[in-house]
Design a binder for these strands. Structure first.
Lengths: 130, 130
DNA sequence: CATGACGTTTACGTAAACGTCAACTAAAAC
DNA sequence: GTTTTAGTTGACGTTTACGTAAACGTCATG
């Protein structure tokens, strides 16, 4: 960690709670491409942004390959109409998936609430008896 | 498919768009336990409910082991105070995870919207020039 | 009774996402 | 000046979630 906002692999390891092995693996998978200083990896702000995107994608259950493809898609700035429209259709698909996940989460949260109420009632019953 | 609401493995395969192999695998992992008729698996309503839970869990990015543990936890009806309170703490943890996912999804949806606007502007520019 | 259609188990294969050494190098600290 | 410390590249191991045959049983139908 220094003033120029560049980071070593152990800096990232600590800040993102990942092993260095994992970070190198993400690089070998084409998800990161840090600069080098005498062989050593030097990470900059844009690498941090990418790493955050990777971790968010993982939390949402996407594979590294999906994350890579998506980042590339969102990153590239095509100039042809066909390509731009293709980007829009892919994003629309991703949006549907995310909306499905939102619904799944809400359903799950509701079911959890039902279980919680059930358990709490049982607890009260026990305490009433005791 | 018959009147008694029992289903064969191929019924499930069709209705849930899974291979029979996958359904058997879920059973071997302890996630399903259908009855048998002369060796053949017979699925009932409660099996369908479980299968829906499995698929929803998978869509949310949980492993089969996590799904199994969760289903067992929510299923069992412990009678001891300590156990009941334990259930509540685990559910609280799961709830936090889901709320995190909700936030991740909303952030991602917002970023997607930004990309969409960007792409749409590019398209308009191109069409204005053309 | 043979022939599908549908089912079974057993077993090996595979892709993804790392973990875990091993063997080496370069810079820093004592 | 050597010993830590931090980093590097293989290479092999592991777990998860199935796919893919192989070899066989059962049942309805012509």
């Amino acid at each position: 960690m220094n003033q120029n906002s560049t980071y070593s692999i152990s800096d990232l390891s600590k800040n993102f709670d990942l092993t260095a092995r994992t970070i190198r693996f993400y690089e070998s998978a084409g998800l990161l491409s840090p600069k080098r200083d005498n062989g050593k990896r030097i990470y900059q702000e844009r690498d941090l942004v990418r790493l955050k995107l990777i971790l968010r994608g993982k939390r949402l259950g996407f594979s590294l390959n999906e994350i890579k493809t998506t980042m590339e898609l969102y990153d590239t700035q095509p100039n042809e109409t066909a390509q731009l429209e293709y980007v829009l259709t892919v994003i629309a698909t991703h949006k549907k998936e995310l909306l499905q996940k939102q619904m799944d989460i809400e359903t799950t949260l509701e079911e959890m609430e039902a279980v919680v109420k059930n358990v709490q009632q049982k607890l009260e019953t026990i305490r009433g008896e005791g």
